[in-house]
C-alpha cells in the first residue's frame, strides 16, 4: 500500500491501537497490497473509551468480556458477581489495553484475509 494511504489510515484509527503496536501495523500495512483496503475499512474495531465506560457500568456482570469475544470469562465474571467485585475493579484498569489488543488481532485478521 502507498505511504500516504497508510499514514491516513493510521491517523484516522490510531486511538484503537497500542502505541507500541503502531509501527508494526504500519510495516504490515506497507507490505500489504491494495486489495486489503476493503477488509481493513470494514474491520470491526472496538473503541477503548466506550469499553471503559461499559466496564465501569456493567463490568460486574461481565458485559465487557462478552463484547471482546471472551464468552467463557464473561460467564465466569457474571457467575462470581464480578469476582466478588475485585475482578470487576481490576478490569477497569485492564480493559482499555485489552480492547487495543483485540483491535490489533482484528487488523491482523483483516490483513490475512
Amino acid at each position: 500500500m502507498e505511504l500516504d494511504k497508510v499514514n491516513q489510515y493510521l491517523m484516522a484509527n490510531s486511538k484503537y491501537f497500542n502505541s507500541r503496536d503502531v509501527m508494526l501495523i504500519r510495516d504490515s500495512l506497507l507490505a500489504a497490497d491494495d486489495s486489503k483496503l476493503l477488509p481493513l475499512m470494514s474491520a470491526d474495531f472496538k473503541d477503548p473509551t466506550i469499553m471503559l465506560i461499559i466496564s465501569i457500568l456493567a463490568g460486574q456482570i461481565g458485559v465487557d468480556r462478552f463484547l471482546l469475544g471472551e464468552i467463557g470469562l464473561g460467564v465466569l465474571k457474571l457467575l462470581t458477581c464480578g469476582g466478588l467485585g475485585i475482578w470487576a475493579i481490576v478490569d477497569w484498569f485492564l480493559i482499555m489495553d485489552k480492547t487495543k489488543e483485540y483491535n490489533n488481532q482484528k487488523i491482523q485478521e483483516a490483513l490475512m484475509r
Binding site: Q60, I61, L78, T80, C81, G82, G85
Partner: peptide, 18 residues
Amino acid sequence: SLCLIKNISGQPCPACGT
C-alpha cells in the same frame, strides 16, 4: 454484601445469593 450492583442500586445482581 461485596456486590457493587447491590450496594449501589439496592437490587441484587444475577449472581447474588449464590
